[in-house]
Amino acid sequence: MPIVRDPLDPKISMWHFLAFCLRFWREKLGLSLTQCGEIIGVARSTVSNMEAGRRRPQDDQMRLLDKAYGTGVLFQVLLWFARMAHDPDWGRQIDKYEEEAVSIKSYHGQVIPLVLQTDDYTWAYVKTSHFKDLDATMARRVAKKKAYWDKGDALLTWTLIDEAVLMRPAGGKEVMREQLEHLLVMADLPHVSLRVIPFSSGEHMGVGGSVQIIGLEDRDVAYSGALNGGRLIESPGEVRELSITFDRIGVKAASEEASREIIKRYLEMYR
Rank of each mutant, 00 (worst) to 15 (best):
F20G: 01
Q61N: 04
E238S: 07
L160K: 04
K96A: 15
V165C: 09
H204P: 03
E203F: 13
M269I: 10
L155S: 03
E98N: 06
H86G: 13
P113D: 10
L189V: 02
I262T: 00
A258E: 15
K144I: 03
S255G: 09
R56I: 08
E261I: 05
T122I: 09
Q93L: 13
R248M: 12
T245R: 00
H191L: 03
A68M: 07
R219F: 12
E100F: 08
L22Y: 03
D66V: 05
D59L: 12
R231V: 07
W15K: 00
E238G: 05
R55C: 15
Y97M: 00
Q35N: 03
G230Q: 04
L74T: 01
T159E: 09
P198M: 04
M138C: 03
D218C: 04
I161Y: 12
R83H: 12
W25T: 06
S32W: 09
G70E: 02
L116H: 12
S45P: 01
M167W: 14
K252I: 06
L31R: 02
I263W: 12
D6F: 08
D188M: 06
D89G: 09
G202L: 06
F75I: 00
A187T: 00
K132H: 15
L216R: 01
K127H: 13
T157M: 08
P169E: 02
G109K: 05
K144N: 12
D6S: 11
D133H: 06
S224Q: 15
V115L: 08
E268D: 15
F246Y: 15
L155Y: 08
L180N: 07
D220T: 02
V185T: 09
L216W: 05
P57R: 00
E51N: 00
I3P: 10
L155T: 01
K28A: 14
Q35F: 02
P236H: 14
I12M: 07
V251R: 11
G209V: 03
E38G: 03
I40L: 00
L156M: 12
G237V: 00
L74P: 05
D135P: 09
E256M: 14
D247L: 07
Q58V: 13
A222T: 10
R56L: 14
G37M: 00
L78P: 14
I244L: 12
A85K: 01
G225I: 05
L79G: 07
S243N: 09
P88N: 01
P10Q: 02
R231D: 15
G91W: 10
I213K: 06
V175D: 10
I233E: 13
G37F: 02
T71H: 13
